[in-house]
Every structure is written in C-alpha cells, then in structure tokens.
C-alpha cells in the first residue's frame, strides 16, 4: 500500500524534481548519468525505462525507432537534451548501442513470431529438406527408410509423420531443433541418448518443440531482456534466439536427470519447476545464459 502510494507520487511528482535537482548538481541529464553509472543489461534497461517514461516525444519514440534510423535518433536526442558531444564523448556510442539493443529486442520478437506463424507444410520443399536434415544430423548412421515411417519415433516424434507435431510452434520448432543438432552436434547426440534412457527417458523431438514454446514465451513476455542486453552489444538476431534455445534444451536435460521424475507423465510438473528456475535466473540484471562446454 505505502509502496504503491510512494510509487505513484514518485512517478507523478518527485521523479521530475529529483531529475531536475540531479541535473543541476551533476550538469548531466538522466540519460548521461545512466550511461556513465551503469553497464550492460542494467544500463540498457534503465535507458529503456527513462525513454518510456519521458514526456518528450523524441525520447519516447526512440524505443521503437527503425534499425537504420538509430544513428539519426541519437543525434536528435542529443540536440533535444543539449548534450555536447565534445564534453561527453562516449555518450553517443553508448546510447547507440542501447537503442540497438532496445529496438532490436522488439524486432527479434517480430522475426521469431513470423517463423512461428508459418506452419510446417509438407508440400514445401524447404520444410521437407530441413526435416530430413534433422534426421541425418541426429542419426548419421541410420538411413530413413521412407518419408512416413515409425523411425521418426526414434528421435522422439509422436508418430510416423512428424508434420503434425510442430503445431502451435510451426517452423520455429523445427528450425530450433536443426540449429541445436547442427551447431552442438555432440551435445545433441548426448541429449538424444539420454532421452532413450529406459526409466528416465523422454521424447526428444517433442520435448524440443515444447522448449521452443518456453523460449518463445519468455521472449514474448520480455523476460529475456537482461539476457540479450548482456550478451549482445547491438541488435539481437535469430541466431541469438537459437543460442538461448540450445542453452534451454541442454539445461533441461540435465535438470530432468537430476530430478529423476517417476515417469514421463509428470513432464508438465517438472517443466513448470524448470521454468520457474530459469525465470529466477533471468531476473538478475547481470544474467547471461549460455551453453558452456
């Protein structure tokens, strides 16, 4: 109660006066103070907050500026806030990086959403090739006997045709699986062999698709901001999303074996527990989740 009253008063009145007083004392605007006082994810996220809360139209619009217009936008901000580039030489560079990170995150969500929204289509040659690639990466020593075959169950699809397993994750699920198998082949093989464990086994491909949903939802809810702000000094790309997915898959496998669930029927409970753990890690402004080999 007191906290929310304080937050209201602060946001409404005190914030303005605080900024004004600090500006007089330090002779710097809020953005400059943030750029100097903080680094990495904390800096970008504080800048994002300051811009969003700003009453100045130029600053407000900066969080959704186009990728190519970032440079221009920084110049406009400096004009607007009377920042002398000679007095604060690093501001321009730092601000540019922050804006690339902030706008890049939004763009990344749109890009990921686009891939997710394209359903797996078995009439699309590109989709079919990706599926075949997944097989050959995971089962290099075994040939697929037919396009529709029970062999798909060996890599954890539900039935004899994987196309129905992608569902709400569309092509994104497949692209994620292929990326993991291609860029972390040894780890993917290790995880696949774990998934065939007689008692602790699970279904590799559909767990993978489920984890695509986890990565996607975290991205959508902005929970990955600190992580991407810390790991990418610019606009995060699809590649960075895949990297995070690989981290999730590898860590989930480890988590599953540590927890030793009674059977696959408890998957959702353990998934929830794993998700809570990841969400906890992502709250730290210094967070950086990468697959360490």
């Amino acid at each position: 109660m007191f906290i929310s009253i304080w937050q209201y008063l602060y946001g409404r009145f005190f914030r303005f006066w605080m900024k004004w007083i600090l500006r007089i004392i330090t002779r710097k605007c809020e953005l400059q103070r943030i750029c100097e006082g903080f680094v990495g994810g904390e800096r970008a996220s504080k800048i994002e907050n300051a811009l969003t809360l700003s009453k100045n139209q130029v600053l407000q619009n900066a969080t959704s500026v186009n990728h190519n217009k970032v440079e221009e936008c920084v110049d406009d901000i400096m004009k607007e806030k009377n920042i002398n580039p000679k007095k604060d030489r690093r501001f321009k560079m730092r601000m540019k990086t922050c804006l690339l990170q902030i706008t890049g995150y939004k763009q990344l969500y749109l890009d990921v959403e686009n891939v997710r929204k394209s359903p797996y289509d078995s009439n699309n040659q590109h989709h079919e090739e990706l599926l075949m690639k997944l097989w050959s990466l995971l089962m290099p020593n075994e040939k697929l006997k037919a396009r529709i075959t029970k062999q798909w169950c060996d890599i954890g699809f539900q039935g004899d045709d994987p196309k129905t397993d992608f569902r709400g994750m569309g092509l994104l699920g497949l692209v994620n699986l292929v990326y993991f198998s291609e860029n972390y082949t040894n780890e993917a093989h290790q995880v696949l062999s774990h998934s065939n464990h007689p008692t602790l086994g699970y279904f590799y491909a559909i767990v993978g698709i489920n984890l695509t949903e986890m990565a996607y939802s975290l991205l959508k809810s902005n929970a990955l901001k600190f992580h991407f702000y810390n790991s990418v000094p610019g606009s995060p790309t699809m590649e960075h999303f895949h990297q995070f997915y690989c981290y999730l898959f590898y860590e989930f496998d480890r988590f599953w074996f540590e927890e030793k669930p009674e059977s696959i029927m408890y998957f959702n409970q353990y998934r929830e527990k794993f998700l809570e753990k990841i969400k906890g890690l992502l709250l730290d402004y210094r967070v950086l989740l990468t697959l360490k080999l």
Binding site: Q158, D165, R167, G168, M169, G173, Y202, F203, I206, V207, I209, N210, T212, E213, Y216, S217, S263, I264, M265, Y266, F267, N268, Q269, R271
Partner: peptide
C-alpha cells in the same frame, strides 16, 4: 489462448 499448443507430454 489456443495458438501456442505443443504436443502433450504426460497430462494437463
């Protein structure tokens, strides 16, 4: 929301 459904492992 029904747009993000994935195959069910276990139960919901």
């Amino acid at each position: 929301d029904i747009s993000h459904i994935t195959p069910t492992q276990g139960f919901n």
